[in-house]
Design a protein around this nucleic acid. Structure first.
Ligand code: FES
Ligand code: FES
Lengths: 145, 145
DNA sequence: ATAATAAAAGACAAAAATATCTTTTATTAT
DNA sequence: ATAATAAAAGATATTTTTGTCTTTTATTAT
């Protein structure tokens, strides 16, 4: 098991990819993104449609069209992406799958896990969509392979 | 998305359940366990068969049979369960699904995520199967609902 | 020996996640 | 207006995960 669903992994990688292109002022097509993050093109298209409907990214049809992210959204945290795609179970759910994580009816892992869980939340809250543009342009960070 | 697969959640809860019964010296039947942890009985049976084959738990057929855990296994960490059921991706895999998590080809979340990942590993390594027997017997901890 | 018990094993089913294919709609350039 | 482009939408397919049903095997008590 990974920490995110495959869908969410693609979503985050794609958003990072679009972000560093958007920062440079260019829209980017689905084909380019799919290649750039090494994902199945048509599946990714579905994911981006969803993110677009939810307002996380923007898109334009027709020639010179493509996906982009506006200034405001560039500064949003990637926890927003995770929440939209995978829901908030990772942030608030019980590690052992109890219907409700609570202090009054805790599972054995509760005390320890809630600390970790909140660190994950914090990490994703403090990581912005455009936080890695330079490193991505320099090729210091990877979104594929 | 949860941090463990449903299968793994059931597995850990079941093993905790068996453990605190085993500590009291009694074997426990699949029906009892399924009720005790609120899981689908026949699915859980499959999971326990697997854990049994892998040597994490023991079982006896026939009247007075059931599942139990021997002294040695009672002291094993639950990371062993996770590894058997969900593999080690949670401990070593890339957060964004890159084929290989590495320092030379890191994804944007690498630096921050590896710290969290190792804390998860540590938590599961330091949590033993029999570590909650008393609290479970006292009803201070829950494995269901 | 026989019947009862309980897990093991094998086959099957349903649901969810992942992936692909086809048609439609909007936009742009000619 | 027309043709080309590119995303949106809808339908379908595949794979994986989760869950169930049936038969078999081992053990125990009578
Ligand atoms: S009850 Fe399980 S993590 Fe809180
Ligand atoms: S490369 Fe992504 S977590 Fe290490």
């Amino acid at each position: 098991m990974a920490i995110f669903s495959k869908t969410c992994e693609y979503a985050i990688r794609a958003v990072f990819y679009i972000a560093h292109k958007s920062a440079a002022g260019t829209k980017v097509g689905i084909k380019d993104i799919a290649t750039g993050i090494d994902s199945p093109e048509l599946y990714l298209a579905k994911i981006l449609q969803d993110l677009s409907r939810k307002g996380l990214i923007s898109s334009a049809k027709g020639p010179n069209g493509g996906f982009y992210i506006n200034e405001a959204s560039l500064n949003r945290p990637i926890s927003d992406i995770v929440e939209v795609v995978d829901g908030n179970n990772l942030f608030y759910g019980c590690a052992l799958g109890l219907k409700q994580c609570s202090e009054i009816n805790p599972c054995p892992l509760h005390e320890q896990f809630k600390a970790i869980r909140s660190q994950i939340h914090e990490l994703l809250d403090n990581t912005t969509i455009n936080g890695f543009n330079e490193e991505l342009m320099n090729g210091l960070l990877s979104l594929r392979k």
